[in-house]
C-alpha cells in the first residue's frame, strides 16, 4: 500500500506532475524576464494543461492509432518510473538496488524513443523529419551523458545511488572533482529535454512542431507533461549525482534543499537556453562528439587519477 501511494502520489506521478508544472513555470518566467518580457502568471502551465485536456483530439486518418495513443502515456510512465529510483531528499530512493543508476538512465531514454515512435506513426512529414532528428540527436548526447553521470559513481566504486550518497557524505570534498561531468551532463540534459540550442527536433520555424505536429488535445497534454516530468527527473538525477549533500538532514529541511537543488538546475537550463541560437542537426552532432564526449572522457580520466592517487 505504501508502495502504491509512493508510486501514484508521493513522490510518484502526482507529485512529479505538480513539481513539473512548477519547474515549467520557473523556466518560462525566468526565460521571459531574461528576454525583457513579463512572462506567464504562476498558474499558466496548469491552465495550459487543463485547456489541452479539454480540447478535441484529432488523430490523422493515416496514423497508426494504437501507437499514436499509446506513446504519450508511455512517455509519462517511463519518465515517472525513472524518478522512483532516484534518491531525492533522503539517501535512499523509493526503490533501490545495485545498478539502479543504469536503469534510471535507460528509463530516461524511453521518452525520447516515444517521441520518435509517436511522431513516426503520425505519418506527417514534419513529424517524421522531427522524429528522425530526435533519434539522431539521441545518439549524439547519450554517450556524453552516460559518461558524465557515471564518472562520480566510478569515483565512489558503486553503481548504486544510496551508496554514492554514503560515499560523498563520508568524503564531501570529492564532489569538486566532478565539475566537468556536471557541465557535460547539464548540456547533454538540454539535448534530452530538447531545449535551445538543441530544440532541433521540434524547431518550429522549420518543421512546425516536429514529432508533436499532429498531436492535439489530451495526447499532446500528456506529452507535454512527460517533458515536464523529464525535466524534474533529469534535474533530480543531476542533483543526486553531482550535488549529493544534505541528504541526512531532517525530512522538511532536506525536502526544501532538494527543491532548491532542482530549481537551481532548472534555472541554469533556463539561462542557457536564453543565451543561444538553435544549432543545426549536423552542428549539434559535431559539437557533441567533438567537445562534449572528449570533455566527459577527461572527467573519467580525472576520476581515475583521483581514485588512484587519493583513495588507494
Amino acid at each position: 500500500m505504501t508502495a502504491l501511494i509512493g508510486i501514484l502520489v508521493f513522490p510518484g506521478v502526482f507529485f512529479l506532475s505538480l513539481f513539473g508544472l512548477v519547474c515549467e513555470f520557473v523556466d518560462r518566467k525566468l526565460h521571459a524576464r531574461l528576454q525583457h518580457r513579463v512572462g506567464p502568471p504562476w498558474f499558466q502551465p496548469l491552465a495550459d494543461f487543463i485547456k489541452l485536456v479539454s480540447k478535441e483530439t484529432i488523430i490523422p486518418e493515416e496514423a497508426d492509432r494504437t501507437m499514436f495513443r499509446l506513446m504519450p502515456a508511455l512517455a509519462v510512465a517511463a519518465a515517472a518510473a525513472a524518478a522512483l529510483y532516484i534518491p531525492m531528499w533522503s539517501a535512499k530512493a523509493l526503490f533501490s538496488f545495485s545498478g539502479d543508476v543504469i536503469v534510471v538512465i535507460y528509463l530516461l531514454t524511453i521518452p525520447t524513443l516515444t517521441f520518435f515512435l509517436g511522431g513516426w506513426s503520425s505519418t506527417s512529414l514534419y513529424a517524421m523529419i522531427g522524429s528522425v532528428r530526435c533519434l539522431t540527436q539521441l545518439f549524439a548526447y547519450e554517450v556524453p551523458l552516460f559518461m558524465g553521470v557515471l564518472a562520480p559513481f566510478m569515483l565512489a566504486s558503486t553503481w548504486n545511488f544510496s551508496e554514492l550518497a554514503e560515499f560523498y557524505r563520508a568524503h564531501p570534498g570529492y564532489m569538486i572533482f566532478n565539475v566537468i561531468g556536471f557541465a557535460v551532463s547539464l548540456v547533454a540534459l538540454m539535448g534530452k529535454l530538447e531545449k535551445v540550442p538543441f530544440d532541433i527536433p521540434e524547431a518550429e520555424t522549420e518543421i512546425v512542431a516536429g514529432s508533436f505536429t499532429e498531436y492535439s488535445g489530451r495526447y499532446l497534454a500528456l506529452f507535454r507533461m512527460a517533458v515536464d516530468i523529464e525535466m524534474v527527473v533529469g534535474a533530480s538525477l543531476l542533483a543526486a549525482v553531482f550535488l549529493p549533500f544534505g541528504l541526512g538532514l531532517p525530512a522538511g529541511v532536506a525536502f526544501a534543499l532538494y527543491v532548491i537543488k532542482v530549481l537551481f538546475v532548472v534555472v541554469l537550463l533556463s539561462i542557457l537556453r536564453t543565451l543561444f541560437a538553435r544549432l543545426r542537426i549536423d552542428q549539434m552532432v559535431d559539437f557533441c562528439w567533438k567537445y562534449l564526449a572528449p570533455a566527459s572522457l577527461v572527467q573519467l580520466l580525472i576520476n581515475l587519477a583521483v581514485k588512484g592517487a587519493l583513495l588507494s
Partner: peptide
C-alpha cells in the same frame, strides 16, 4: 532572423 534560427532572445530584444 533571430526567431528563424531559434534565437528568441534576439527577437525579444530587437522588437523591444
Amino acid at each position: 532572423a533571430g526567431h528563424e534560427v531559434g534565437f528568441d532572445t534576439l527577437l525579444m530584444y530587437a522588437w523591444r
